[in-house]
Structure formats: C-alpha cells, structure tokens
Amino acid sequence: MKPFQKLDGLVAPMDRANVDTDAIIPKQFLKSIKRSGFGPNLFDEWRYMDVGQPGQDNSGRPLNPEFVLNQPRYKGAEILLTRDNFGCGSSREHAPWALEDFGFRVLIGPSFADIFFNNCFKNGLLPIKLAADEVDALFAQCHGSEGYRLAVDLQARTITRPDGKVLAFDVDPFRRECLLNGWDDIGLTLRHADKIRDFEAKRRIAQPWLFA
C-alpha cells in the first residue's frame, strides 16, 4: 500500500448526502478482475451523458458539464469534501480503488459508511471525519474561492485552511501507523500466527462441528 503522510492539495466539493457506492462506481465496472483502471469510471453516471461500458475508451465520451468534477476549477483535485454517510451501500472496494485511481488521497466529511471507511484505509486513502459545522465551513470556503487548497498532516492529525485556521481530527492509532508506513495488514497479522493457531486449536476442541 502507498503510504500517506502529508498532502497539500486542491479541494473539490461533493455537496450531497448519502452518496452510495453504486454512484461512485456503477456495477458494470465490477466485472473487472483487476484492482486498477477504475478512475475514468468514477461517478460514471453523473459524470458522462451516456451509459459507460467496461473496457470502453472513455476519452471521447460526452461529459456532463454540470457535474462538479468536470468543472475546470477542480481539475487535479486530491481532496474531496463530502456530506453525511458517504460511501453507503455495497462493500465493493472498487469504490476506493476508483477514487484513488482518479487522484484522490483524502476525503473529508461529517460521516462515512462503515465498510467504505474501512476499505479506504486499505488503499492509501485517508477518510477524515469532522464536526458538521467544520465541514459546512469548508464547503462554504471551497465554493467561494477558486483554487481552494487544504494541507493535511496525518502525523500531526491536522488540517490547515488557507486562512491559517487549524482543524484537528481523530484517527485510530493503529490505522494511522499502517497508513503512515504503507504497511500491509496481512504481514502484520501473520506476526501473530502462533496466537491464531492456538486459538484455532482450542476452538477445534470446544466446537468441533465448526471444522467439519
């Protein structure tokens, strides 16, 4: 996994609640057996005027000019502002894969759906929960000033606004360590292989029907 430490990035606003994973990456693209290449189909139904198909060349497709990420001022955005319950719905990890492949490294919102939130950390994507009024203020500033950027520091757990105001955020220490170092979860877990084997051996005796 790509480590994440600091980022000073352009911000794009996704100003709607309950953005679901079907919207983030529609089902037809889930037929891929790869982990990469989902970026061009991020928010496909909102982003293009036609219906996208897997394997298609997306460069000539008609863009929806109304869609926020198609507006020139947000080109190259690496931080996405979101509203409540972003990432709800399916467990598809294709959603963080698509966001990451598109170029996002940080998501900032008042709340995220559980499975999606978890999936982000496995892919070098940092989802940050802030209080609703802090998120409101970021939306207002972002809408109001072109080229709006935020500086995110995971080590310090801070977001610095262009006006100098510093917002602190919480993140699980274990997740933070993994993300800062780009650690592979599996390798970390396998350090406890003996403990897993012991647990399993006891379970096999206590509930043998689970090992039929």
Partner: peptide, 15 residues
C-alpha cells in the same frame, strides 16, 4: 460484509 483487501486478509490469516 468486508472489502476485497479483507477477503484476502481472511484467506491468508483466518482473521
């Protein structure tokens, strides 16, 4: 429900 990274994690570690 879990994501695909976790599918791989469970396959590799049973945890």
């Amino acid at each position: 429900g879990i994501g695909t990274s976790e599918v791989e994690h469970v396959m590799a570690t049973q945890c």
